[in-house]
Each structure stands twice: as structure tokens, then as C-alpha cells.
Nucleic acid binder design. Structure first.
Lengths: 118, 118
DNA sequence: TTGACATGATACCTTTTGGTTTCGCATTAA
DNA sequence: TTAATGCGAAACCAAAAGGTATCATGTCAA
């Protein structure tokens, strides 16, 4: 089966949409943790937490580093870039200062968005 | 039936999770539009667009102003605040961390290569 | 080698989500 | 008044999301 691949902003926004996943990021910002360690902080099974970590990884927020029989889940600061860029696009617009960042954002949105304009 | 109310960040992150809704925000940043007008830009029914606009309103991104028999959907710049605040939390953390890292690196360099006198 | 441990993977279930149709209600234009 | 217009709301549907339980696999320690 094909694992449908989302564009970076979509994968990132999707990852942040769930409160558990945002809480996991808050946890991981202090230090890297194994899955079991992360799971200890939540009222759900390790399997569920593993799914959340996978989505966070797809979103570019988490990087996994095998270490013996464990796997360390580490936060990736650069993963926040697509989100901040998207928000900056609006800030810039409101400041009436459009840059080529606008083109990148519009290109991303055009992947699925409005019908032929014009 | 209870309409469960989400906290502000959750409602905001949820609203941004869908690509159509992000595209709607890009549309509305130029000017306020009626539902039908927004719907003209997408390949879906007016009812579907209405649902998206409702979620954007719940997320604090859109404000509706009745005007005769029409309703103008207007973007609300302040709606982005919960998101930017959340991101700022991480940025602040990493700023400290980078500072600590810089200090550690400088200390290490002073030990390893004391030659470098500036 | 053997067993315990940390994780991966799969099947399955329920709720949410994103979409459609259809109908009803105000408001405006004729 | 009548007819068209712009919305709102409800019923319905398929797919995705969030969770569980269960089993398989690789790695470490004794």
C-alpha cells in the first residue's frame, strides 16, 4: 500500500491539531525520551502514543534515534519552520510587506486549493 | 446534546489543520466575502464551505457581519495570537538553550585552543 | 541459550470529519 | 404579491482519526 505523502505544511499542521501531540512536544522539549517514557505521562496505551509519535515524525517535529534496543524520540526545532513561515506570511501581508515568501505559501496552498482563478 | 466547547488553542489549531480552511484564510486576507463568494473559489458545495467557515469562526480566525440578506465573512488578525503564543513558548526555550550551547562551546574552545585571543 | 524487555505491526472498533442532498426561511427585486 | 436570491439546518454517507488488544521481532543480561 502507498503511504500517501502530505506536503510539509499539511503534515505539520495536522500534527499540531491534536492536544496529546502538542503535550508530547512540550515533554520532549526538555529532553529526548523513549516511547515507554513518553507513554508514562499519558493515560493511554504505548501503542497509541507510538502512533502520535509517528505523526509528529511525519510532521517534522520529532526525530528518532535508535539506541540499542531503545529508540530515543528527540524534538527537532526546525520542524516548526513551516508553521512559522505560514504565519509570517499573514503578518507580512498585514504589514503590507510582501516578499517571495508569499509565493512559497501560495504554491503550497495551490496543491489542493482554489479552482482556477481568473 | 451538548456542543462541546474547545479551548482557544485547540479550536485554533483544529481550524488550521485543514488545507481548504487555510486556503480560505488566504482568500479572506484580501477582503471580506460572502459565503457564496468564497464557495466560488472551491470545487465543493456552499454547504461544505459554510461548515469550514463555521470552524474558522470557532477558531477565532473569522468574524461574520450580517449585511442585508448577505453575511460578510471577515478575517480577524487577532485570531492568530493563540498559535503564535504557543510557538513563542518553544522559541523562548530554544533561545536559552542556544545561549547555553554557545557558552559551552566558547568555554570548550578556550580550553582546547587558548591561542585564539580576540 | 534463555528469558525479559522495548519496540513494531496488525486487526479491529468507535467517533469525528469532510462532504453531499434536500428542505425551509428571510430578504430583496419585479 | 410573487419570484428569485442568499443562508441555515438537518439527514445521511464514506473515510479518516484516535484508541484498544494482541502478536511478532530484535536486543540485552544472566
Amino acid at each position: 500500500m502507498s503511504t500517501l505523502t502530505l506536503d510539509a505544511p499539511q503534515a505539520a499542521f495536522r500534527a499540531l491539531a491534536d492536544p496529546t501531540r502538542r503535550a508530547i512536544l512540550v515533554l520532549l522539549k526538555d529532553r529526548a525520551m523513549t516511547i515507554a517514557e513518553v507513554a508514562n505521562n499519558f493515560d493511554m496505551t504505548r501503542a497509541a502514543v507510538k502512533k502520535h509519535l509517528t505523526i509528529l515524525t511525519q510532521g517534522g517535529f520529532v526525530q528518532v534515534t535508535p539506541q540499542g534496543r531503545e529508540k530515543l524520540n528527540e524534538i527537532v526545532p526546525q520542524g516548526f519552520a513551516p508553521i512559522t513561515n505560514w504565519l509570517t506570511y499573514f503578518d507580512l501581508f498585514w504589514d503590507e510587506k510582501l516578499t517571495d515568501l508569499a509565493a512559497a505559501i501560495e504554491a503550497d496552498l495551490n496543491i489542493q486549493s482554489p479552482k482556477e482563478t481568473k
